[in-house]
Amino acid sequence: MDVMDKQLSIRNRNLTKPAVYAGLIVILSLLPLLIKSPYWLHVFILIFIYIIATVSLRVITTSGQFPLAHAAFMGIGAYTSAVVSKELGWTPWLTIPLGALAAMVIGILIAYPFARLRAIYYAVVSLFFGIGVLQILFVFEKWTNAYGGLIGIPYLLGATKVPYYYFFLGLTSLCLLALYRFEFCRIGTNLKAIAQSYMVASSVGINEARYRVIAVAVGCFFVGLAGATYAHYNVVLSYTSFDMLATLWLVLYAIVGGMGSFAGPIIGTAVLMVVPELFRELKEFVPFLSAGILLVVVFLMPQGLVGLPQLVRSWIVRRRERKAITHAS
């Protein structure tokens, strides 16, 4: 009977989860009917783009590597696509995949030599690589106009927000689906195995270097895609969107949401991007608000925001227990 119960509950869960996601997508698709403000549509579009970036960042971390160059790879995708479409006149529909591929190829090129490094060393060296790679923009100043900001990038879908909203809603859903499958098939299992013990993993025949490179390749491809589509949505690029601080923000979104689960970076990105917009009238005090969220999460929620429901539940249980004890006595 136990087994039956378990199987039933598993089947139930199998149905609930997709139902919740489908519901969420339906709500999100109806949103533009309610929200007419282009400003808020813009915020949502940015959230969609950054969700791809943070979730792809987390994919790399599941293999035990902590990349601190992720925004730079977003920049590689963005600038590749923007410059090629602007200078050669190619359609963005072609240059966007090109940008994603460029990010992936450069990711693979550095992943091999860096696959020797572990943990914090990898983090530092990749951080530095991120800073270094951005300097390429200044070398090709002629095309990138790095200091002034690259303008005149062709639009992907014209100048109104609504088409972009649906485009990015679809794109983000597809990317999340793709990355979800990646994590929860045997490839993702192998990555997690490597992260837990690279010695045991290689003793059972998992090629550590190869899988680490695969993780970086996939992560960089998706963040490159996010960057490239961003370029043709925003049509203006500034290198500050991809510098070290930008990378740290991506990391932050992911950690605050919770690195331990797939939903973590999604929630973290959404919360940390929406809250400052909600309190826009605070103006220059807004960073204090963000800092406050960061500190509350880091001190009180070791699992990140995704751990919040569990935290609340255990708190309620503890309270009830205490009540029961006082009643009894």
């Binding site: 195995a193 837990q196 045991v200």
Partner: peptide, 8 residues
């Protein structure tokens, strides 16, 4: 020292 996939 028997390392494991501790979280699996």
């Amino acid at each position: 020292l028997n390392p494991l996939f501790a979280d699996f």
